[in-house]
Amino acid sequence: MDPSRDGGFWTVCFGSSERERRAAGWFVAACAAWAAVLLLAAYVLKHQIVVAPAAWAVAAVPALGAIGTVLVFVRFLRDLDELQRGIQLGALAFGFGAMWVAISSYPLFERVGAPAADPEHYVLVMMLAYVIGNVVAWLRYR
């Protein structure tokens, strides 16, 4: 193990063994592929390049990609060691918790004049909280 990376954010939270690196690589690749398919499908549907029923199939492809990405993430979790798996599950729980708080609370603020939020904003809250969860774990275990 390269000592300069030992204790680094990625090593602490996502591991550094060959197996962990491979699993993380698959996950990153799956995320990138899913994002590309999602953008492509959105472009195709927005510009009405295909019509129904083919448009339904185009709309379904990103959903299948998302399911595949979730399965790759589960595999990635299995390949981590138990502390790193705990860190990831804790960060995920924090992310989902933050999103649940935002979804259940923010509409009330909208009613009293706060700017309207789109679903993507709630997803951003979840992602941000997930990253914060990882950073907190890194500070604790580095």
């Binding site: 193990m1 204790g7 550094s16 138990e82 502390l83 790193q84």
Partner: peptide, 9 residues
Amino acid sequence: AVSRQTVNA
């Protein structure tokens, strides 16, 4: 077969 951080923790 765990990370050094796990041993340290």
